[in-house]
Structures are given as structure tokens and as C-alpha cells.
Design a binder for these strands. Structure first.
Length: 585
RNA sequence: CGGGGCGUAGCGUAGUGGCUAGCGCGCGUGCUUUGGGAGCACGAGAUCGUGGGUUCGAAUCCCGCCGCCCCGACCA
């Protein structure tokens, strides 16, 4: 039994000045966590109870799926990460340190290497597969900017698991098993979440999905189709390709004088003033904007890329980076332009773009720029634009690219419309494939005695982040409203009143509830006023609150439901059973 | 790393050149109080982030440094 009179807890009446998101504010005010350094937190007794409840659910579902728990060190040697190139690829996000001999060490940001090497050390036959192992471990990532409290720390707890299979079909089965286990886990946590397609990105491999808890404070933007159920991270959204248009009646392309129109807006204004369209006004969507980037490959090679897209859209850097990964795009700077005199800044057009052209700029188009679409675009001469330039007739590109910003109302592949929302990434599952097994030489013998590289899946849950994600979704203006399985207790029992009787009865009831197997948080503080106790109970968010006070004189105790706010006056003699029923409902 | 803001008691804050740094919460002692953050009295708690400078006098003005928060870039 937890007694408030002795609990190591101090709730705060005021919001901490630095806390911005609801979960951070409430977890701090309710005395569950305290910030120690940016992105680094301590768990106090009540918070640690909540944390362990979440961890227990995650572990239980992993175990139920038949996965086996292991535990790696958080402090790791450099060498395995050197072999997979992550010692360098992880960059500044890796916490690095040296031991007394001067050897490089790191605090593990994730443990693919360790899992792979462990399996390599023990298993060597296809008969040993499939294998699923997991750990719940503190991870360290030196984020450039930790924020939002527990939601995004530099030290956090993650459950990471890995599957090992001999072939692709096995990997798919393993992936599906994990997906099911994750659904059960997040359902038990009482979360409202979506499963979205994600970019497999750096890790390689094919299938990849993210579990996003709905929250306006989430850092991931995703889209959902209002009609077909499709959901995807913005980075992974694909744009439907419009049907090609006939262009028989379109006049031949012609260059016009358009002085001082380096921006789309100025170009549209000038076009309407000097070259009116007749049937309607020109808009930004009639222009073809070409944005150039310098792209750096992992091996250091640099090349130029132009993205052509309708003038009413911006390039979404996140989407561009996601498609190009692991290469890194940066906007052209003055020296890049200087090196390519055929590119007229502000007036760049398809005429100068393409790998075959002198500037050697790889030219990729937004899928919306299909054959037959007609555009106003740069003529590659400062102060002039081309009109009626028709895609497929007057120009072609090296390919297409998904890099344009996504907007609410954009079309889905199914013909429906997409809407955007934000979410907190609570889980990520993906088919790693053979990248790590290859790099670390994890092979097993198949049934023909031939050596085969193992194929892996990688699956993560942000355990500590889950606590914050649940808090984001389960609170009201008074405080936290934990789902029962997550809550630090089943019953928050408040004793109050000037007579001795309620205190005696409350003690008795607390003991009886505990004997019945319920977890009891007993507010037995003598000095605190009723108002303080009620407010603390609401802040802390235990689902069932019981008040033994002045109504005991009438044989009544009060049972409150924290979430619904319902209050029931219950005869003392029925109280025990009533509370047990309420907690087991 | 770019842009913005802020460092005053455990927490929230006032104080823009004048000597004793103020208030609320919390904390301690005593009395009163116990159904919605109680009252009274007394009390403890701050080298005003840090180093230097200006000045008769600096929390306050100037310069450097450190730290923190927010937006962006980046990320479970």
C-alpha cells in the first residue's frame, strides 16, 4: 500500500515554466518525473510504477508471442559499429567516450550489431531458425534538440527486437507476428493510434510501418485517406499520376520578355497583366518551378539535382531527403550557380536541365507534370520565360520524384482525398533484410549444406515514450486519467473529516481492498485539507477515487470515477464489493 | 548548427542605478481548522548563472563565457 503521508512525492500547484506539452506538464506536476538535464529524466516512485506497468505490458506481449528476452550492455565497443559503418554514419547523434586506455566506446543508440553478432556466435543452422529475440534497454542518442519532456529524450528506454529467418517468406511471417504483437500491446495501453506505411530508408529492406499515436504534439506528420483507409507517413506518400492530356490544340512554345520575375508570384502577376489567358487568370499552378540541389552521396561524390514541380507547391525537404537517403540534398548556393553558367537563377527551365545537357543536372519531375500538361517556365535566360511549354512535346526529364509538399485535400491513389494529422511514433517495424547479416557475416547452413546469409527484421517500441504518449491521450484539464492497467494504483482512497471515525474506517477499507488484490494509494495525510487531497487525486489520475469522510456518519462512502466524473454514494457495508466491482469492470 | 527568448530560494515570479532583494506556493514551529488547493503568529531558506568592466554605489549598465527554453534543420 502506498501511503501519501510517507510517499516520496511533491505535487506542484503551478505548471513548471519549461514544460510545454501536456504530458510533460502533467507528469512533472503530478510528481512522476523530474528533469535532470535536457532530454534526461528521473522517475519518482509514482512515475516509476507507471513506467513499469507499461514495460510489463510490452514484455508480456513479447513473451506471449514467443519471443525471448535478452539483455545487452548499454556501453559498447566501437568495433562492431565500425564494421557496419555506423560509427561514422551515426554522426553527432552517437554518444561517444573513451575508456582509460583510450579505446573508443559508445553508448548504444540501437543494437542491431550486437544482436546479429550474438546470433552469429551461437547458431549456424537453418534448423535453429526462425528466431525472435528482444531486449528492453536504455538507449542513448545525442539529439540535436531534445524536447517535449519524456517524449523525446536523449536517454530513453526502447524495446527492440530482431527476427532471424532463412528466407523472405520466413521474414514476412516474423514481421506479421511482430505486427500482431504490437497491435495487442498498444491496444492494452489504451492508445488511439494508426499504422502507417513508412520509408524503409537507411536501414534498407522493403516493408516498413510505423505505429503513430494520434497527438497534435507528435513530430510525425502522416496522411489518411478519407475513403480507402490508406495511411502513410508524409515521407512515404505517393502521388497519383494524372492521365496524359491531348495537346493538339496547344500553340507552339514561345519565349516572352518577363523582366523582374524571379519569383512565382511576380511571374503570375506579370503574366496576367501582359499575356492574359482569356478563359481564366493564370495561377501559380500554371507555372513549372525548377529547384536545384547539390546532393552528396555517402562516399562524398556530389551531383546536381533539379526538381520540377507545379509552382504552387514547395519542395518538402523531409520528403526529398527521404527519397534520396542516404544521399543528402542541400539547396544550391552562389558557388554552385557560378559553376554552372547555363543555369539562370530565377529563370531555370527544362531547356538547361537533364543529364545530357551541358550543366549535367539530373532532372526529375513531380508526377503531376505528365505528358500533355502545359506550363509557363524558365527560359534559361534572365528576364524571359517560356509559355505553352508542353511536357512530352517540348521537354522530357530523367525521371520522376516524390518531393512535393503534401496538402490536405490532395488526391489518394484510390481517388479519395487525403487529410493530414500528427502522431507520436510509438513503434516501428521493418524488414531489415540482409544488410547487417551481410556486414557481420551472419550465415547459416541450409538444408543442402550451403551457406546462406540470414535475413532479419527489426522492431522497436519506445517504452518510456509510451508513458508520455499515453499521458498525451489520457488527461483532462484537472490532470491525468490513466487507463487502469497503466495507473499507479487501482484505488485512490482519501480519508478526511474531523472525527476519528472516517480515518479508522478508511484504514480498514484500505487493508481490505489490498487483501482483495487491488493496488491502493491511500491518502492518510492528517494535515492536508480535503481540497488539496481531491486536487491531488485528480492530478495523479488513478481511475477510481474513494472518499471516506463526513458522510460516513450517514453510513455512506463516496466512489468516484476519475474519467467520467461519476460519483456514487455507497453504503459502507457495500463499499468493499462496490469498489472491487468498479475496478474489475 | 541558424533564428528568438530567458537565467533572482525547492517551484512560480516582482524588482531597469540607491544602500535591508519583494511576493505567492512549498518547507519548519505553535494554536485553530478538515468535503474542493484553510486561518493566525513566528521562522528557516538567495554568494541575484559565471568572469571581468563602468560607478561613490550593480540583480539592474557594458563585454566575454556557461547554461536553459522555444521555432527551424535533425531524430524512437
Amino acid at each position: 500500500m502506498l501511503r501519501m503521508s510517507t510517499l516520496f512525492l511533491r505535487t506542484l500547484r503551478e505548471d513548471p515554466a519549461d514544460a510545454v506539452v501536456p504530458s510533460d506538464r502533467l507528469l512533472t506536476r503530478a510528481g512522476l518525473v523530474r528533469r535532470v538535464a535536457p532530454g534526461i529524466f528521473s522517475w519518482l516512485p509514482l512515475g516509476y510504477l507507471v513506467y513499469r506497468n507499461v514495460e510489463r505490458i510490452v514484455r508480456a506481449e513479447m513473451d506471449a508471442a514467443g519471443f525471448q528476452e535478452v539483455h545487452f550492455p548499454g556501453l559498447l565497443p566501437r568495433e562492431p559499429y565500425e564494421r557496419t559503418h555506423r560509427w561514422t554514419e551515426y554522426g553527432d547523434n552517437l554518444f561517444r567516450l573513451k575508456d582509460r586506455k583510450g579505446n573508443d566506446m559508445l553508448l548504444g543508440p540501437t543494437h542491431e550489431e550486437m544482436f546479429t553478432l550474438m546470433v552469429k556466435g551461437e547458431f549456424s543452422s537453418y534448423k535453429d531458425l526462425p528466431l525472435h529475440i528482444y531486449q528492453i534497454q536504455i538507449k542513448y542518442r545525442d539529439e540535436a534538440r531534445p524536447r517535449a519532456g519524456i517524449l523525446r529524450g536523449r536517454e530513453f528506454v526502447m524495446k527492440d527486437s530482431y527476427s532471424f529467418d532463412i528466407d523472405d517468406a520466413g521474414l514476412q511471417r516474423s514481421y506479421d507476428q511482430h505486427r500482431d504483437a504490437y497491435i495487442k500491446t498498444f491496444d492494452r495501453c489504451g492508445l488511439d493510434y494508426v499504422i502507417v506505411s513508412a520509408m524503409s530508408g537507411a536501414m534498407g529492406g522493403s516493408a516498413s510501418e510505423e505505429f503513430l499515436a494520434m497527438s497534435e504534439f507528435g513530430e510525425d506528420t502522416f496522411v489518411q485517406c478519407t475513403s480507402c483507409g490508406y495511411a502513410a507517413n508524409v515521407e512515404a506518400v505517393t502521388t497519383p499520376v494524372p492521365v496524359a492530356l491531348p495537346f493538339d490544340g496547344v500553340p507552339a512554345a514561345h519565349v516572352e520578355e518577363t523582366p523582374d520575375t524571379p519569383t512565382i508570384e511576380s511571374l503570375v502577376d506579370l503574366s496576367n497583366a501582359r499575356f492574359p489567358r482569356g478563359d481564366r487568370a493564370w495561377t501559380a499552378a500554371d507555372t513549372l518551378k525548377n529547384i536545384v540541389f547539390r546532393v552528396t552521396d555517402p562516399d562524398g561524390t556530389q551531383w546536381a539535382l533539379a526538381v520540377g514541380l507545379p509552382g504552387d507547391r514547395e519542395v518538402d525537404m523531409k520528403r526529398l531527403e527521404a527519397v534520396l537517403h542516404p544521399s543528402v540534398p542541400e539547396p544550391f548556393d552562389e558557388s554552385d550557380f557560378a559553376a554552372r553558367p547555363t543555369l539562370a537563377k530565377g529563370y531555370i527551365g527544362p531547356g538547361a536541365l537533364g543529364e545530357a545537357k551541358p550543366a549535367k543536372v539530373r532532372y526529375l519531375l513531380d508526377p503531376r507534370v505528365v505528358e500533355g500538361t502545359r506550363w509557363i517556365t524558365g527560359s534559361d535566360i534572365s528576364g524571359r520565360h517560356v509559355y505553352d511549354l508542353v511536357a512530352g512535346r517540348d521537354f522530357a526529364a530523367d525521371g520522376t520524384i516524390e518531393a512535393a509538399e503534401i496538402r490536405d485535400g490532395d488526391a489518394c491513389q484510390c481517388g479519395g482525398t487525403l487529410t493530414q494529422a500528427r502522431g507520436i511514433e510509438i513503434g516501428h517495424i521493418f524488414q531489415l533484410g540482409r544488410k547487417y547479416a551481410q556486414a557481420l557475416d551472419l550465415t547459416v547452413l541450409d538444408e543442402h549444406g550451403k551457406s546462406q546469409v540470414v535475413t532479419m527484421g527489426s522492431y522497436g517500441i519506445g517504452v518510456s515514450r509510451l508513458v508520455a504518449a499515453i499521458a498525451e491521450q489520457h488527461h483532462d484539464d484537472k490532470g491525468l486519467t490513466w487507463p487502469r492497467e497503466i495507473a499507479p494504483a487501482d484505488v485512490h482512497l482519501v480519508a478526511t473529516g474531523k472525527d476519528e471515525a472516517p480515518w479508522v474506517k478508511a484504514e480498514e477499507l484500505a487493508a481490505a481492498l489490498e487483501a482483495a488484490g487491488l493496488r491502493v494509494l491511500f491518502d492518510d495525510r492528517r494535515q492536508a485539507s480535503p481540497g488539496v487531497k481531491f486536487n491531488d487525486a485528480e492530478l495523479i489520475g488513478v481511475p477510481t477515487v474513494v472518499v471516506v469522510g463526513k458522510n460516513l456518519a450517514n453510513g455512506i462512502v463516496e466512489v468516484r470515477d476519475r474519467v467520467s466524473g461519476e460519483r456514487a454514494d455507497v453504503p459502507v457495508d457495500d463499499a468493499l464489493q462496490h469498489i472491487i466491482d468498479a475496478c474489475r469492470a
